[in-house]
């Protein structure tokens, strides 16, 4: 059973990092869905005046500009 502790810790760290990354991705999806719902509910436009939803590329400038 030589060097078993190194094997154990290496696997443990790997699965903790992968698990944390999956959790982070899931949180990102949830946050984005919440943001979409908020925007849709709070939209002040009538449906026919709502902006086009499909992105057209980078011709639309960032909000930070």
């Amino acid at each position: 059973m030589s060097n078993l502790s190194y094997l154990f810790v290496a696997f443990l760290i790997t699965w903790i990092v992968i698990g944390a990354y999956l959790w982070m991705l899931n949180r990102q999806v949830q946050n984005l869905k919440d943001e979409v719902d908020t925007l849709t509910e709070e939209s002040v436009f009538e449906p026919e005046h709502r902006p086009r939803l499909k992105p057209s590329g980078y011709e639309t400038k960032s909000l930070r500009d």
């Binding site: 999806v29 984005l32 925007l39 639309t60």
Partner: peptide, 17 residues
């Protein structure tokens, strides 16, 4: 999927503003 959603949100918010 997340990155696409992020870009669509930015476009949407920009268009709204």
């Amino acid at each position: 999927g997340i990155e696409r959603m992020k870009d669509q949100l930015i476009d949407y918010q920009y268009a709204l503003s």
